[in-house]
């Protein structure tokens, strides 16, 4: 065993000490094991150098060197700061007026390229619009339904249960319409990006001239918040692009904020309910804690307030016997 693992050690030990020699006499023939021989060393060195040379010949020397990693500040994108959205507090709901305005921005601006597959008209009811408003909006869109009695598909006005219409029938059409870039579906976009709502707001308002030395591919726009800097989407929000029903001035910051809140709602429709449930849980748990503390004191009061008095026996008049 030992001689197999460390052939040189063993053979040297065998050579040096006569005791060792005596002990390993059964194995220690004067011939060195092959792996310890000079031939083995020479061959393996040649093999290593040869494979290195052959690899370099095939793939080039640089293939062995570490390559540039995509980890610079520009490649990661600018990290968005925390924008103080109203719904960020632990007990805060969405700003629903903002959701309503944000829907308008989505409908009039974003929906030209971006789908919102997972939101149905009914989802808007009670969140940003009334039933009647949502129904009226759904009816403006034509949906294919069927088959009817004759086995044919037909067009009908939308219902509350229909999902938001997509701008393109499929991904290829979307790419073809946008110079090869695919506008992502926005249903879960807030959850799907690092920085969440902060990122969306920063991205929408962050378009600017590229700093010196930045080269953009053709058809790309510079946005520091987008990883890599070059984004296929151009700046879309300009002051006064939409006209809000409630009279809020439609500046680009305002529209960006509204549409971000809307998309945050689309990604987390359970948000308000979740925080309400959190508060309910707090109510119940704190009440139970208070009750249990009170009950504990109540139950223990009997034990805690009792007094153990040691009343030693009176010494006998005549002393111990």
């Amino acid at each position: 065993m030992l001689s197999q693992a460390f052939p040189r050690l063993v053979s040297r030990a065998a050579r040096v000490s006569p005791i060792g020699k005596a002990r390993f006499s059964s194995q220690s023939s004067p011939s060195v094991p092959f792996l310890a021989s000079k031939t083995a060393i020479g061959t393996s060195t040649l093999l290593a150098a040869g494979s290195l040379a052959w690899y370099n010949h095939l793939y080039g020397t640089s293939s062995l060197l570490p390559e540039a990693s995509a980890n610079s500040a520009a490649e990661n994108g600018m990290h968005p700061t925390t924008w103080p959205f109203e719904h960020y507090g632990p007990f805060e709901t969405f700003n629903h007026a903002s959701i309503r305005r944000g829907y308008q921005v989505y409908r009039e601006v974003c929906s030209a390229c971006h789908s919102l597959d997972r939101i149905a008209w009914r989802n808007l009811v009670g969140v940003s619009h009334t039933v009647d408003e949502a129904k009226a909006m759904a009816e403006e869109v034509e949906y294919t339904d069927g088959p009817n009695d004759e086995g044919e598909m037909f067009q009908r006005p939308g219902k509350l249960a229909d999902y938001m219409p997509a701008p393109y029938p499929n991904e290829e059409a979307a790419r073809a319409g946008n110079g090869g870039g695919l506008p992502p579906d926005l249903s879960l976009i807030v959850k799907a990006r690092h920085g969440n709502a902060d990122y969306i707001y920063s991205l929408l308002t962050g378009y600017c001239d590229p700093p010196a030395g930045v080269k953009l591919a053709e058809g790309m726009n510079y946005n520091p918040y987008f990883p890599g800097g070059g984004i296929a989407m151009a700046r879309v929000l300009f002051d006064g692009l939409v006209e809000y029903d409630d009279g809020t001035p439609a500046t680009s910051s305002q529209m960006a904020k509204d549409v971000t809140v809307f998309l945050n709602w689309a990604a987390e429709p359970e948000h308000d309910q979740r925080k309400k449930m959190g508060l309910q849980a707090l109510m119940i748990l704190s009440t139970l804690t208070a009750i249990s503390l009170y009950v504990k004191r109540f139950k223990w009061s009997y034990l805690k307030t009792r007094k153990i008095v040691y009343d030693p026996p009176k010494p006998a008049r005549h002393g111990p016997l």
Binding site: A74, M78, G213, G229
Partner: peptide, 21 residues
């Protein structure tokens, strides 16, 4: 190949934090 992206990001980082609230 030098660019000013990092310097620009430092500006943005500062301005965003200052302007956001």
């Amino acid at each position: 190949g030098e660019d000013c992206v990092e310097e620009f990001f430092h500006v943005l980082h500062c301005v965003d934090a200052c302007a956001a609230p």
